[in-house]
């Protein structure tokens, strides 16, 4: 493994070169200041050295122009870095519109992944090259953090809410996947491998093996939707005791407080598990909480099913 020693991790996502350029840029800027200071200190220390301790230095007290100069110039440069880094940051946190969604749950000490097609895996993540992938994840117990150095992305997994990272792999290969938020005894064992595959290989993998045994994520969600009796209130035409879920995903929902929220994955998740937290305007607080009745994988399946419901009550095939 020593032969693979390098100063930079592999660049395996579209974001990686952007972040590496920023890194190099900041290195160059900071190295300039570091060299100026180190050269000055060293030069002065030698040039003005006094072996006796009896001499005194020149009676210099300060200079306002110098003070202003070395406050303002670094400040302007700092603003420059800030703007550059913030632009990169928004590229990291804003996923493109069309992504392949993968659901994940962190628990001590493993990562579970669920693919749309129904494949499930633990501590391994298979993704296709050249396609934007968005991993939506949460934690079942304490904080974790999904970190893939080759893609330069990470985010904390927080119990009770969804986090997401996105990346577009650019290079077929195997990469580390780490838990980067300390989570107890086997924190350093909560690692895995990301397999970036050719699109065709991924398709074969995703639909192969025992994948279809439990059905696709949407099919599983549909099953739960009936099994948990969601279907009795959330009628597709909106005449039920609960609001219709057709087309709800991504829409603006008005709550009874008058507040408007976007119905994203986190909203749907909260509405299933803590149904009293946000109630849609015009509906009663009658939905039971499903906390403890359904696990995170089930919640993901339900959400994926709700996402597949379009306005008018028609189901669309999951993006394939």
């Amino acid at each position: 493994m020593f032969s693979g020693f390098s100063l930079f991790p592999t660049q395996a996502s579209t974001l990686a070169p952007e972040i590496d350029n920023l890194y190099l840029g900041v290195i160059l800027i900071t190295a300039f200041f570091a060299i100026v200071v180190v050269v000055c200190v060293t030069y002065f220390a030698i040039k003005y050295r006094d072996h006796t301790g009896d001499k005194i230095g020149a009676p210099i007290t300060g200079s306002v122009p110098l003070e202003l100069g070395w406050s303002l110039i670094p400040f302007v440069i700092a603003i420059g870095i800030f703007v550059w880094a913030s632009i990169v940051f928004f590229h990291i946190v804003r996923a493109p519109d069309q992504t392949l969604e993968i659901y994940s749950t962190g628990k001590r000490w493993m990562w579970r992944f669920q693919h749309i097609d129904g494949q499930r895996e633990i501590n391994e993540l298979h993704v296709p090259v050249g396609r934007a992938v968005r991993v939506v994840f949460t934690s079942e117990d304490v904080l974790h953090d999904l970190f893939i150095p080759a893609f330069r992305v990470k985010a904390d997994a927080v119990p009770g809410r969804y986090s997401a990272i996105w990346f577009e792999p650019t290079r077929v290969g195997e990469y580390h996947l780490f838990c980067a938020e300390y989570c107890g005894t086997r924190h350093s064992g909560m690692i895995g491998t990301v397999y970036v595959m050719e699109a065709a290989d991924y398709q074969a993998w995703a639909s192969g093996g025992g994948a279809t045994a439990g059905g696709t994520l949407v099919q599983r969600g549909e099953g739960l939707f009936t099994q948990l009796a969601c279907v009795t209130c959330h009628l597709p035409d909106g005449t039920g005791r609960g609001p219709s879920l057709a087309g709800v995903y991504g829409s603006q929902v008005t709550l009874e407080s008058g507040e408007t929220v976007t119905a994203d994955e986190s909203y749907l998740r909260e509405s299933i598990l803590m149904s009293q937290a946000k109630t849609v305007k015009g509906y009663e607080h009658i939905m039971p909480t499903f906390q403890g009745l359904i696990n995170e994988d089930g919640v993901a399946a339900l959400i994926e099913y709700i996402k597949s419901l379009q306005a008018g009550g028609n189901r669309v095939a999951s993006a394939q």
Binding site: V26, T30, A85, V88, H91, I92, D145, P149, V153
Partner: peptide
């Protein structure tokens, strides 16, 4: 090196 971590785009990769 604190500036690296204050930089949002770098902190995502560097933090933790």
């Amino acid at each position: 090196t604190g500036l690296f971590l204050a930089s949002l785009g770098l902190d995502v990769h560097l933090t933790d």
